[in-house]
């Protein structure tokens, strides 16, 4: 069954139509990648799903409930959250405090401590740095903290916006390993990523956006072999549909 079903989603900023009626569905426990050149509308899509974008239209069903137009905190409390682009950890707060913030919306206080231990097991570097200001962490550590934060908010579905942005290749390896761990633990993931190969390595299914519309979609393995992808990215003249 689908955890997330997006139908005819449009996003407009004033007179700019950033997303023009797209359909996406994410199976429960699946990892779906949303690819496309910069400016294609990937981030706008995630923002709209999360209640961050004003001019969104269409239908977004999360576990069967239409959540479009809900304030973000309500969506989060229902079990879906986003790791925003650029990580956006609370720089003046310590690692520990960042993690505490993530649990504010939770009702099941009793299980928080256990969850926190699990998160530290998954991200040992955060345990080492738990008393440090988040702003003093390296980019990779901040990204791990952002993932850990989302995890601790007890989300079942995570939207990841460009988790590899600005990170060294080695660090990206670590982050992607963690993302695979999350999937293994049963989380459903929708990943926006500019690093196409890496994304396709771990995704089950992918959509390619260009100019606010979906130009390609299919199982990740198939897209990996497609030449059309390079065209969508590198601005080569488009062939008659791939």
């Amino acid at each position: 069954m689908s955890a997330l079903v997006v139908q005819d989603l449009g996003v407009a900023y004033g007179s700019v139509q950033a997303v023009r009626g797209i359909d996406i569905s994410v199976e429960r426990g699946g990892l779906v990648a949303l690819l496309g050149p910069n400016g294609a509308g990937k981030s706008s899509t995630l923002r709209a799903l999360m209640g961050w974008a004003r001019g969104a239209s269409g239908r977004v069903a999360f576990d069967g409930e239409d959540i479009l137009g809900w304030p973000p905190e309500r969506i989060v409390r229902r079990g879906m959250t986003m790791v925003p682009e650029g990580r956006r950890v609370f720089a003046d707060l310590t690692v520990d405090e960042n993690l505490v913030v993530a649990t504010v919306g939770r009702r099941d206080r009793a299980t928080i401590a256990a969850d926190r231990d699990q998160v530290f097991a998954l991200f040992p570097v955060l345990y080492e740095r738990r008393g440090q200001k988040a702003g003093s962490l390296s980019g990779g550590e901040q990204q791990q903290l952002a993932l850990a934060r989302a995890l601790l908010s007890a989300a079942r579905l995570l939207l990841l916006d460009e988790p590899s942005l600005g990170l060294a290749p080695k660090v990206v390896d670590t982050i992607f390993e963690r993302i695979v761990d999350l999937k293994r633990r049963g989380l459903t993931l929708l990943l926006v990523e500019q690093n196409v190969d890496r994304a396709l390595d771990i995704a089950d299914h992918a959509y390619v956006l260009a100019n606010g519309a979906i130009v390609m979609s299919g199982p990740a393995a198939e897209l990996r072999r497609s030449a059309g992808l390079a065209q969508a990215y590198l601005g080569l003249e488009r062939e008659s549909a791939a």
Binding site: N195, V196, D197, R198, A227, L229, A230, L234, L236, E237
Partner: peptide, 18 residues
């Protein structure tokens, strides 16, 4: 190509003419 697409992507020689 690597910067844009990732480490090992070698597209099957795309035609530059459409």
């Amino acid at each position: 190509i690597e910067a844009y697409l990732g480490r090992a992507h070698r597209p099957t020689e795309p035609n530059s003419e459409g």
